[in-house]
């Protein structure tokens, strides 16, 4: 689960204005939340906070039931990060690695046995429709293929929390629908899912509770949107 109490975050120096201001909300384990708001509202910033790429400047935050703060041991934060899957808006693939090696990374960092890794990677790449592209270098993929590689990498290690930043903007309609179905399924199986988007039609396909950000503030928190 996720809980934020009066969390603020500013970029860099103290005198910068806060990018996120006084956010308070909770998502139960297995919950699904749309993260909505206009471009520049702070959706990506909030996701990077939830991914523990940044720490809150003020307020209390706990992720997957663990308090996240400056004083926390670095090793504890590493273990926590290993239980989160993140699809970045810019994918953040390793340019020197093939599709398969990119997707294998979370498992390799957890020192899983190599034959197990290969089985998992082939299965998931088949599912995202990249079964024929395993050995292609990440730099030679189309935008949609990169996005699907990033999605496969975010879910391969069965994380307890999935964060996705505009995960369908490079996908075709049918692929976007399959992805939403999978997120719904994972959430039903107990994975917490937060998906940021400014695509209203996508939200209408999957009616779930939402958080609406505007200029770094939570202006609306609601149940299912029709």
């Amino acid at each position: 689960m996720i809980r934020l109490d009066n969390v603020s975050w500013r970029r860099g120096k103290k005198d910068n204005g806060p990018v996120l201001a006084n956010l308070s909300f909770a998502v139960p384990q297995g919950g699904f939340r749309w993260l909505l708001g206009p471009s520049g509202a702070g959706k990506s910033s909030l996701l990077s906070l939830l991914h523990i790429e940044n720490l809150p400047t003020d307020g209390q935050m706990s992720i997957l039931g663990k308090t996240v703060a400056q004083e926390e041991k670095r090793a504890a934060l590493v273990r926590l990060r290993q239980r989160i899957g993140m699809v970045h808006q810019d994918y953040q693939l390793m340019p020197d690695l093939s599709v398969a090696d990119n997707v294998a990374l979370p498992l390799r960092l957890q020192n899983r046995p190599e034959d197990e890794i290969q089985d998992e990677v082939h299965a998931i790449l088949k599912w995202v429709g990249l079964g024929e592209r395993v050995d292609v270098p990440a730099t030679r993929l189309s935008g949609g293929e990169q996005q699907r590689t990033a999605i496969a990498r975010a879910i391969i290690h069965r994380p307890g929390l999935i964060l996705a930043d505009e995960p369908t903007n490079a996908l075709e309609e049918s692929q976007a629908c399959r992805l939403l179905d999978m997120f719904a399924e994972l959430s039903a199986m107990g994975t917490t899912v937060v998906v940021a988007t400014h695509n209203e039609s996508l939200v209408r396909r999957l009616e779930r509770p939402f958080l609406f950000l505007e200029r770094g503030r939570l202006v609306e928190e609601g149940g299912e949107r029709a």
Binding site: M94, P95, D96, L97, V99, D101, N102, L105, R108, D135
Partner: peptide, 14 residues
């Protein structure tokens, strides 16, 4: 043809 998996690669290319 390059193999899909090439040992313990992590993309650092040191």
């Amino acid at each position: 043809m390059s193999r899909p998996f090439s040992g313990r690669k992590d993309g650092l290319s040191l």
